[in-house]
Design a protein around this nucleic acid. Structure first.
Lengths: 237, 237
DNA sequence: TGATTAATGTGATATTTGTCATGTAATCAA
DNA sequence: TTGATTACATGACAAATATCACATTAATCA
């Protein structure tokens, strides 16, 4: 079901501007263009599985991908949602390990695959790029520390409120009736994001709606009261 | 209370062999030796605080340091325990951010401080070293994903059992009566490691003792039945 | 040494949250 | 369109865990 088609060369790619590839040299960009594969993925398709070997890195040109671990109880813990401009799989590649997580398309996506050798070549030849990659890894590490701390020290209600705020920050589009979180996530996926049971998410979302913090528009969530959610999430930032 | 004294030069440092500095060139090692500070720290002393700017990296020559975040409820979530050969603070330094966590001495420690410039100089000049740092960061990221998944999907009992196994793996010394975890942690610190309340740790440890999975020897814990703990921790690895 | 503080332990209790069961609504495939 | 599957929803209930209060013991220090 994967579609391979002609794609924008990296030199002209717009989503690159917001990515780690932002400041690469012309020759390196051409090298990547020549070696990459551009693939269109449909919702539900799987990019890679935990435990398999990374053969390169993925750059998201458009769409949304969930990166998650499957716990021993079968539930998915979503590590992050990756969007346009984000890279996938580079940590496992550079760590010289199998994928520590799996990745599945959440919203139809256009994704470039850069093979291992090309990526490593650019990394080796462009020290500045290597430094940016390192910096990104360090930043991600800090984020994971925050997530871990929240997971152990905050209640589900707090975490759900916080998750909604974060989602609206990243995927929010302003409307007349509050900010719409413009991606479709199932309750189960939200539960995976928060780290809880699906039923609990359903109940809490109803509660949030009753309290007029959020509303629903089709399958999407409207954030009506950010301040209220921030208060609930014990987040003062 | 910090003591500055003469220290082994990096070239001769034994704990370096197990660290990221393992394969540095002679000139780089000398450069580090010339610029580092060697400081002896006592239990309870604080190495750095979350939110402050990193001025360099710390290399642990001996001792144990807890790296933790203070949650909004005041509790400490311990991110990791760092021991001989481990580095501290490099993620924040390379991420060009303030410290994302705090570090406090758990067991009396000898620690070298390498100033920012020296560390960055070596990083810039030794590509292989940079690659090893990157690899370590990637590995840590994978570990954090595991921890997050465990934190949301496993019970406290499972996590405590797992924590004890990990501790015995790292700090265990074999004795006639099981494997002794040879560091002193308060119940509160164990709670911070697991991500739970102190009372819960106390109760569960008593339960584990009653079930003859562990025993106490002074302030230290003896692991009597690893298999039993592994079963309890839902860990098959 | 005695006084003070920190660490450990225990009980009672309330709450949060997960689980199971079941039902309805929405979506999808043939 | 219809049957099947998936998503959403709700109730009942049990279990795990946090919190608070208060002992008791150990460690520290003046």
């Amino acid at each position: 079901m994967k579609t391979i088609e002609k794609s924008t060369p990296c030199e002209l790619c717009m989503s690159r501007k917001f990515s780690l590839f932002a400041n690469l040299s012309e020759p390196h960009l051409c090298h990547l263009s020549d070696h990459k594969n551009f693939i269109t993925h449909k919702k539900g398709q799987i990019l890679f599985y935990e435990g398999t070997k990374p053969l390169g890195v993925f750059c998201i040109n458009d769409g949304v991908v969930k990166v998650y671990k499957t716990a021993s109880n079968g539930k998915e813990q979503i590590i992050r949602l990756a969007k346009k401009g984000d890279f996938l799989g580079y940590a496992s590649l550079l760590g010289e390990e199998s994928y520590s997580n799996s990745a599945t398309i959440v919203e139809d996506a256009k994704i470039c695959f850069v093979p291992r050798e090309s990526f490593l070549k650019v990394l080796a030849e462009d020290t500045e790029f290597h430094r940016r990659v390192t910096k990104a890894l360090c930043h991600d590490l800090g984020i994971m520390e925050d997530k871990l701390t929240d997971a152990t020290q905050k209640s589900i209600r707090e975490r759900l409120a916080f998750t909604l705020l974060k989602l609206s920050e990243t995927y929010g589009i302003d409307g007349n009736a509050g900010e719409k979180i413009d991606i479709v996530l199932t309750r189960e996926e939200i539960a995976g994001l928060v780290g809880t049971a699906t039923e609990t998410v359903i109940r809490l979302l109803s509660e949030f709606k009753k309290d007029e913090l959020i509303d629903f528009e089709g399958k999407k969530i409207l954030v009506l009261d950010k301040r209220g959610l921030a208060r609930l999430s014990d987040f003062y930032g």
